[in-house]
Amino acid sequence: MWVWFAKLGSPKWFYELSTKWLPWLVVATVVVIGTATVWALLFLPPDYQQGYTSRILVVHVAVAGTSLAFFPLMAVAGTITLVWKMKLADMVAKNAAALGAWFSFITLATGSIWGSVSWGTWWEWSDSRLVSMLFQFFLLLGVVSLRSALEESDKAAKACALLSIVGCINVVVIKYSVEWWNTLHQPASPVSIESGSANGPEFWIATALMILGVYLFLSLSLILSTRNEILMRERRSLWVQELMSTEK
């Protein structure tokens, strides 16, 4: 089992495997996001209250839900870095932070655009869901700048790993903020595909598809930037040198 674990952490192994799987991931991402977008924009019936602004929520819910995956992902990678000193884990964590900041920003922006018409406000400082999501955005920017501030990469990796583990607390706060406190933000929707239940099936199929698509996109973007990181950090190793002379 430990042999397998060590192999998983080998940058070379990851690079070669991802080369094989990348085309399929690209196809899957394009197909799923494309289908979900067309469905949402053309076929999704208007909400009985909000009209077509419910289409905004398909994107918002998918990106927001996915953005909560970053701190747990970075915390797991960070723990592996701290305990087993696996090189690959830190490369993933480093690139995840910047991507996570993007996810958080898009969550805030799309939510604001929806809120401006539905709630009648772009932003409410008193809403704990909104503020905790903003906090996640700043935390991720913090991880990114911590990494660039500490030049010694080993020290930077350790500091970022610790911050990532601590940041997971905020994810729990974001998730349960709408249940623990009263907020302007609505609580999470009950997922239901049965028609005749409180949630119409149309909205949830579109959203579920979009969530899947956004997760595929996350993996794609993260794998692309991790591959760059591998080439950069392993540039002196024999396999990268050989790769340079063969691959275009």
């Binding site: 208007p46 909400d47 929707s189 005749g196 909205f203």
Partner: peptide, 27 residues
């Protein structure tokens, strides 16, 4: 001085809403 609208966590089309109302199961 300010009034904000809350939205609930249920999203449905007018048809579904009407069907629910007719069945008396709307919340």
């Amino acid at each position: 001085s300010k009034v904000l609208a809350k939205h609930d966590e249920n999203y449905m089309s007018p048809e579904v809403k009407a069907a629910l109302d007719a069945a008396g199961t709307s919340t």
